[in-house]
């Protein structure tokens, strides 16, 4: 019953193949099978957003996706955000604004914020808070995260 299945997906743009048990989540696959430990496990119930990744262009909780569901799909994780040694503007602004403390929530916030800014390059504070409502942080109180995202939006638009 627990035979492994072979899955092919594009992970941060690179063709990737893996074997997993169907009961394993995409999060488990990323972390334990592929060694991509950027995505974090917080709740495993879709509430905290620490496991957020982009699946075929949509933001999802990777804890609520089964490994085999990634077959033929494009998956983007926090590991795909920096280009070589150059951080993504969101990552840079999170550092500058000290928008993290323990850091468990940070990869999820970065991925969610990246999706937001791709859809809406110039969001209001309200829109940022609304778009990040699926990401929980127990450390920062959110304010610095919101400021970092707004600042990154400004930088990314070259303003």
């Amino acid at each position: 019953m627990s035979g492994k299945v072979q899955v092919e997906m594009a992970l941060n743009g690179e063709a990737t193949e893996f074997l997993c048990e169907p009961r394993q989540s995409l999060l488990e696959v990323l972390r334990d099978v592929l060694g991509f430990t950027g995505s974090k496990e917080g709740c495993l119930t879709g509430d905290c957003g620490a496991c957020s990744v982009v699946l075929d262009g949509r933001l999802v909780c990777s804890c609520l996706v089964l490994g085999p569901e990634a077959q033929g799909k494009a998956v983007e994780t926090v590991e795909g955000m920096a280009k070589g040694n150059t951080l993504h503007p969101l990552q840079q602004k999170f550092l500058e604004h000290a928008a993290l403390q323990c850091g468990i929530c940070t990869p999820g916030f970065l991925v969610a914020a990246k999706v937001l800014l791709e859809k809406n390059p110039n969001p209001t504070e309200h829109e940022v808070r609304y778009a990040l409502a699926g990401n929980l942080c127990r450390c920062t109180g959110y304010d610095k995260i919101v400021r970092a995202v707004l600042d990154a939006a400004t930088v990314m638009q070259g303003r």
Binding site: G46, G49, S52, L55, R58, L59, V60, C61, L64, V65, A112, V115, A131, A133, G134, N135
Partner: peptide, 8 residues
């Protein structure tokens, strides 16, 4: 739910 949940 959140945007993450809306996607699914």
């Amino acid at each position: 739910g959140s945007d993450q949940i809306q996607s699914r």
